[in-house]
Nucleic acid binder design. Structure first.
Length: 597
RNA sequence: GCGCCCGUAGCUCAACAGGAUAGAGCACCGGCCUUCUAAGCCGACGGUUGCAGGUUCGAAUCCUGCCGGGCGCGCCA
């Protein structure tokens, strides 16, 4: 979903309270009660318990020492200095010195009008206006289809990116395509070997080759396009090649096969097989992610970095930095100077630069493209990689503080209470495509972001699939559909909702359930801001669950389509606003908001 | 062995830059459909926040040390 602009100049309830407190602090500084140089952070929080009011401020406890006063006594002075205006009904001092604010109903009513007039833009803010941030995520090697592990990175990265955009950042979503390394050569060779098998050549497929069915499919395409013209015999292929495991070394074996493939095919035809494999898989990944609601501004090629000379340029720059030395014929980066565990190789003794070298060049390029913040979303198994990348950026004179690496822990799938076994080597992994097909894109997107990224996740396939009350996705979607259903009922009864009358008649909403719903709706912008800045989309999933809960409760307790037109219009305004917020939140997570279920 | 992440109700997880009586869902038990979708609602049960110290007005949250689990420690990518 693309939404161009966020509203400007909005001031949410919480901010109004913070401002009232800040003004009081200024007054107390002026009269000497507080030291003039005090720079307190005004923290206003939603209370957990409404017996403590709607908002609480702990400022008196924070400043007590500086003011040489007891927290509660200072709290009283602050309260005396408050200019609360019309929306605050009551202020109380409680516990160790909290200042609790009780708001009147009118304070919440404005929220409904804002939601209804702003529609799908409601909740968005300009917090990050003018700042560019890059989010790089998934970036799986294009050597096979995405599996469920990548799915979490995809759902999480997309949600983080969309949230940042929602609070005003200009977001650049990027997929780094590792199209240059040895793995790609293994893929190309695997494809060609399968092609040879299809042509009747018999041999043992290398244990280190790519085993999946998709390799056979690509080989079949090659045969369809070129017939027998790429065919060679097993003798040509294997004569002089070192043995495969278990007798020999599987790495030496596959490397020798890659070399032999190059010789036998020649540069052009080898290139052709290579490109066919790469493009087929990349197209598949792009399609897969697209159907998952995950889209990018840019697919950035590693090879383009190598070919443009950027990698060599980076190596040269590092060479002049005094953090680089030669040992054993290889070129090393002394990352231990920056706290890394050991030094890292930039250029191997065979003259080939490492993946690490390209990655330094890539990150340097990111920073030079002028993003205020660069966010990498990696699998947790790459955590050891963070220090060396930051070290290299520092050695190059860049600020590693601009790079945030968010590590996503693994998701373990459960089916029928049993852990789903996955082994990449046999090609028997569960692909993202299979997961989408099994549980649907909505459930998969939602489940993947229900946990904060550093939490190990148990993904219950049965639960995600179940169309029951245990499933939070359906629970929230059902709330949305229910509102739509109410309006369909309204039409069947030949009644029309008067929106303006509803907004003007909000005073008639005096039920506790209505109050709870109003308060919950007013929190939405705060949730977005917090979820975005903390990179925690799970906050939004929990919020939506709570909002749906408040709605279902209200639905069961009261009838909306009542005879009293004023009350009816007001109630419909409230539930339509609820529907809008549910819809906005779900869309940010890449989940649909259905009209019927 | 070293490093990173995690440890909260029987299970899966929350707890908003340390806040007040640690909250939800599931499971189990008991209620609610002649009224807008019961894919729903209400109630009950459930805790020494892994253990032991420390920091302060106040700790699940910060620090130290243990215990337990995951991941990583290549001239692979």
């Amino acid at each position: 979903m693309r939404i161009k602009s966020a509203p400007t100049g909005l001031e949410y309830v919480k901010e109004r309270i913070a401002k009232i407190v800040a003004d009081a602090v200024t007054r107390l500084k002026a009269d000497g009660t507080l030291p003039a140089d005090a720079q307190p952070a005004i923290i206003v929080e939603r209370t957990r318990d409404r017996a403590h009011g709607d908002f609480a401020c702990n400022i008196a406890m924070m400043l007590a020492k500086q003011a040489q006063s007891k927290p509660r006594e200072l709290a009283e002075k602050i309260v005396a200095a408050l200019d609360t205006g019309t929306q605050v009904a009551r202020v109380e001092i409680a516990g160790p010195g909290f200042i609790n604010f009780f708001l009147g109903p009118a304070a919440w009513h404005s929220v409904i009008g804002e939601v209804l007039t702003q529609g799908e833009v409601f909740g968005r803010s300009t917090l990050g206006a003018g700042k560019r941030v890059q989010v790089e995520f998934v970036s799986a090697n294009p050597t096979g289809p995405l599996h469920v592990g990548h799915g979490r990175g995809a759902a999480y990265g997309a949600a983080v990116a969309d949230l940042l955009e929602a609070v005003g950042y200009e977001v650049h979503r990027e997929y780094y395509v590792n199209d240059a390394g040895r793995q790609m050569d293994i893929l190309a060779t695997s494809v060609w070997l399968r092609y040879l098998e299809l042509g009747g050549t018999e041999f043992d497929f290398p244990s280190n080759g790519y085993q999946g069915d998709y390799v056979q499919d690509i080989a079949a395409t090659l045969r369809r396009e070129h017939g027998d013209s790429y065919q060679h015999s097993a003798e040509e292929l294997f004569t002089g090649i070192p043995a495969d495991a278990p007798a020999g070394d599987k790495e030496l074996h596959i490397d020798a096969l890659i070399e032999r493939s190059r010789q036998l095919l020649g540069d052009n035809r080898y290139r052709y097989v290579f490109e066919l494999g790469l493009n087929t898989i990349l197209d598949d990944i792009r399609d897969d992610l697209g159907l998952f609601g995950v889209n990018y501004q840019e697919w950035y090629s590693e090879r383009s970095l190598v070919e443009s000379g950027a990698v060599n340029k980076t190596i040269e720059r590092l060479r002049h930095s005094e953090h680089v030395y030669e040992k054993g014929g290889a070129l090393w980066f002394r990352s231990t100077d920056y706290g890394d565990e050991k030094d890292r190789v930039l250029v191997r003794d065979n003259g080939q630069s490492t993946y690490f070298a390209s990655d330094i060049a890539y990150h340097m390029d990111k920073l030079e493209r002028g993003f205020e913040r660069v966010i990498d979303i990696w699998g947790a198994d790459h955590h050891g990689y963070v220090p060396r990348v930051k070290a290299a950026l520092e050695a190059l004179g860049d600020d590693p503080g601009r790079l945030d690496v968010l590590l996503v822990q693994f998701a373990v799938l459960y089916r029928g209470g049993e852990k789903v076994q996955m082994s990449t080597r046999s090609g028997e992994f569960v692909t993202l495509r299979q997961l989408r097909k099994e549980v649907g894109s909505d459930a998969a997107r939602f489940f993947y972001v229900m946990r904060k990224c550093e939490q190990h996740m148990d993904f219950d396939l049965d639960l995600a699939k179940s169309q029951s009350n245990d499933n939070p996705v359906y629970y929230i979607q059902y709330a949305h559909a229910r509102v739509r259903s109410v309006f369909r009922q309204l039409a069947e009864k030949d009644l029309v909702w008067n929106r303006e009358a509803g907004i003007n008649g909000l005073d008639t909403l005096t039920e506790a359930h209505e109050d709870a719903l109003l308060v919950k709706l007013s929190r939405y912008p705060e949730i977005l801001e917090s979820a975005a800045t903390n990179h925690e989309p799970h906050q939004l999933t929990h919020y939506l669950r709570e909002l749906a809960n408040d709605f279902h409760t209200y639905y069961n307790a009261h009838t909306f389509i009542v005879d009293d037109a004023t009350l009816r219009d007001a109630r419909l305004a409230l539930i339509e606003a609820t529907r809008q917020v549910l819809s906005n939140g779900l869309h940010l997570l890449g989940v649909s908001a259905p009209d019927t279920m």
